[in-house]
């Protein structure tokens, strides 16, 4: 395992080191909490961040598997096109925005605007989420095991939103639907893979009321 100590180093140094040693074993990065835009745009490889990471963590990820043992800042996994990002702690606001594909798992809580404009990724938050979660989702799955704040799934266009807990208020253009057998299978598959203790049957599914809510 290659270990990179990021203490007092800038983004350019760290990212060139990361890209150099990408083909080797998993890379471990330490003391990187001061860096924003860490591990951006990697196409393959495995990276473990020990401790916390800053904003835009794993942005434009295109195939790497990245795990962070602490908390992350805002906009985690922004515009990811493939790969997996695992956050063992909490995330700030805007985690999993604009993602095309791949998986984001946050074991702690996530802030407001989580999974905004998600275009096909699977975003799982084991804790609670803040307000405006899932705003303008265009595709993909959002799974919240805990509770949600205000305006949940606001202006949902396509895709599925599953929630295990309660929400304060639902956003525009949303409809609560019965869980199908496939939904339950899908959820239990995820829960098994990522070791989440929850009962899929107790989840609520939210879908878009209309595909074209803007033009009346």
């Amino acid at each position: 395992m290659t270990v990179i100590n990021a203490k007092a180093k800038d983004l350019k140094t760290i990212s060139s080191k990361l890209k150099e040693s990408l083909n080797e074993d998993p890379i471990e990065v330490k003391n990187a909490s001061h860096l924003h835009g860490l591990v951006a745009g990697l196409k393959h490889g495995e990276v473990i961040i020990q401790g916390n990471a800053g904003d835009y963590f794993g942005v434009l990820n295109a195939g790497a598997t990245i795990r962070v043992t602490g908390d992350v800042g805002n906009y985690t996994a922004d515009n990811m096109t493939s790969g997996t990002i695992i956050v063992e702690g909490n995330a700030g606001y805007g985690a999993g925005q604009y993602c095309y594909d791949g998986t984001v798992i946050i074991y702690g809580d996530a802030g407001d605007f989580t999974a905004t404009m998600n275009k096909g990724a699977t975003i799982i938050v084991v804790g609670n989420v803040g307000d405006e979660t899932g705003t303008y989702m265009l595709d993909g799955d959002l799974i919240v095991v805990g509770d949600a704040g205000e305006n949940f799934a606001n202006f949902l266009i396509r895709g599925n939103v599953y929630i295990g807990g309660k929400w304060n208020s639902l956003g525009h253009n949303t409809r609560v639907e019965e869980l199908t057998h496939e939904d339950i299978e899908k959820l239990s598959g995820y829960f098994q893979t990522y070791d989440i203790k929850a009962d899929p049957a107790e989840f609520t599914k939210i879908v878009a009321a209309s595909e074209k809510p803007f033009y009346k």
């Binding site: 925005q97 905004t116 705003t135 074209k212």
Partner: peptide, 27 residues
């Protein structure tokens, strides 16, 4: 399906965020 872009970046709340966005684009 209609492709209606948002009016602003959902992943930018402050000018500081935009600075980080430029940083990661350069990176």
């Amino acid at each position: 399906s209609d492709a209606l872009s948002p009016c602003r970046y959902y992943d930018v709340q402050t000018l500081e965020d935009m600075k980080h966005m430029v940083d990661f684009l350069r990176d």
